[in-house]
Computed example of a mutant assay.
Amino acid sequence: MPDITLLIVDDHPVVRNGLRSMFAAAPGFEVLAEAADGREAVALAEDLRPDVVLMDLRMPGGGGVAAIAELTRRGLPCKVLVLTTYDTDTDTIPAIEAGATGYLLKDAPRDELFDAVRAAAEGRTVLSPDIAARLVTRVREPRSGSLSTRELEVLRLVARGTGNREIATELFISEATVKTHLTHIYTKLGAKDRAAAVATAYDKHLLP
């Protein structure tokens, strides 16, 4: 059986080196390359076609969720296993919606990580127990009229003062799609413009 090929994506060199060493010492794995951000990850995945991409989420120069969405959009066969320190709904839900096969925290034991990579390579979903439990709760208790995860992403960028063109670039979507999301946001929040939408979102505790 051929080795499972990997692309490691993390903005911290120490983390990348640690993961590379860990997998190099274990039979059945081959690390093809490393990337420091989401944009580099997409380019390398396109070129190298790894079986599994180990993806961090929050990285300067291109985040993991946007990279996962772009990999999905391009139809690349690699499976994405998120490996991060963040386990909030605002991190997990967008990553899974974007196309991630699994979601694991960085404090997972080594053997659990190896098993997760093998499962991801086979196309099986892998979720840490805490995240799985929270997703079940979220599905059972949907919030009526709430913003979608993509709309929340757009709104968070709007709150930072990001323009439509920059939002489109950050999220790998078109400006027209950004405008559509904004229209839906305004309608759901009963806001007439960007400033009002952001203010209402803070009032409703939709933004941190």
Results as ranks from 00 to 15, higher is better:
His205Trp: 01
Val31Pro: 00
Ala121Thr: 06
Ile167Asp: 03
Val80Thr: 11
Glu30Asp: 12
Gly38Ser: 13
Leu44Lys: 15
Asp56Glu: 11
Arg134Asn: 11
Glu170Cys: 09
Glu46Val: 10
Asp11Leu: 02
Glu34Pro: 09
Leu189His: 04
Ile131Arg: 00
Ile185Leu: 05
Gly145Arg: 05
Gly123His: 01
Arg165Gln: 09
Gly102Asn: 02
Val198Thr: 12
Arg20Ser: 08
Arg118Trp: 10
Pro27Met: 15
Glu151Gln: 14
Lys204Asp: 03
Ala24Arg: 05
Leu32Thr: 06
Glu70His: 01
Ile167Lys: 12
Val139His: 10
Ala116Thr: 00
Gly75Lys: 02
Ala33His: 05
Arg138Val: 10
Thr200Asp: 05
Arg58Ser: 12
Gly62Gln: 03
Asp115Val: 06
Lys79Gly: 12
Pro27Val: 11
Ile96Arg: 06
Ala100Asn: 06
Ser144Asn: 11
Leu6Gly: 09
Leu171Glu: 03
Asp3Gly: 07
Gly145Glu: 04
Gly75Pro: 08
Ala69Phe: 10
Thr183Ala: 15
Pro129Glu: 02
Pro50Ile: 01
Arg194Glu: 02
Asp11Ile: 10
Ala120Asn: 00
Ala69Asn: 08
Ala100Tyr: 04
Thr137Glu: 07
Thr101Phe: 05
Ala120Thr: 00
Glu46Ser: 07
Pro142Arg: 06
Leu44Gln: 11
Ala195Thr: 13
Thr92Ala: 13
Ala69His: 13
Ala120Lys: 00
Glu46Gln: 15
Val53Ala: 10
Pro77Ile: 10
Asp56Trp: 13
Thr92Glu: 05
Thr169Gly: 15
Ile185Asn: 08
Asp107Gly: 01
Arg165Cys: 05
Pro109Thr: 00
Thr101Pro: 09
Gly190Trp: 03
Ala43Val: 15
Lys179Met: 15
Ala41Ile: 07
Val53His: 02
Ala45Lys: 07
Arg150Ser: 12
Leu54Tyr: 02
Leu104Trp: 13
Thr88Gln: 13
Thr92Arg: 03
Ala119Thr: 07
Arg138Thr: 12
Val31Glu: 01
Val136Asn: 05
Asp3Ile: 04
Thr180Gln: 14
Ile68Lys: 02
Tyr186Leu: 09
Val82Met: 01
Arg39Gly: 12
Ala24Met: 14
Glu70Leu: 02
Ser146Thr: 08
Leu135Pro: 09
His184Ser: 15
Val53Arg: 05
Arg165Ile: 12
Lys192Asp: 08
Asn164Ile: 06
Val117Gln: 02
Phe114Arg: 07
Leu6Trp: 09
Arg16Leu: 03
Asp51His: 13
Thr149Ser: 11
Thr5Pro: 12
Ala116Gln: 00
Cys78Pro: 08
Ala168Cys: 08
Gly63Ile: 01
Glu30Lys: 14
Val31Leu: 01
Lys192Ser: 15
Thr180Cys: 03
Arg156Leu: 14
Asp193Thr: 04
Leu171Gly: 12
Ile68Phe: 04
Leu147Ser: 12
Gly38Asn: 11
Thr149Phe: 10
His12Pro: 14
Arg110Glu: 13
Lys179Glu: 14
Ala121Trp: 04
Ala191Pro: 11
Gly63Asn: 05
Ser144Met: 09
Asp37Val: 05
Ala98Asn: 09
Asp56Gln: 07
Thr149Asp: 12
Phe172Gly: 06
Gly163Val: 14
Leu57Pro: 06
Thr88Phe: 14
Lys79His: 14
Glu175Phe: 03
Glu175Thr: 10
Leu147Arg: 08
Leu57Ile: 06
Tyr86Arg: 11
Thr101Cys: 12
Ala201Gly: 04
Pro77Met: 01
Glu175Leu: 01
Leu189Cys: 08
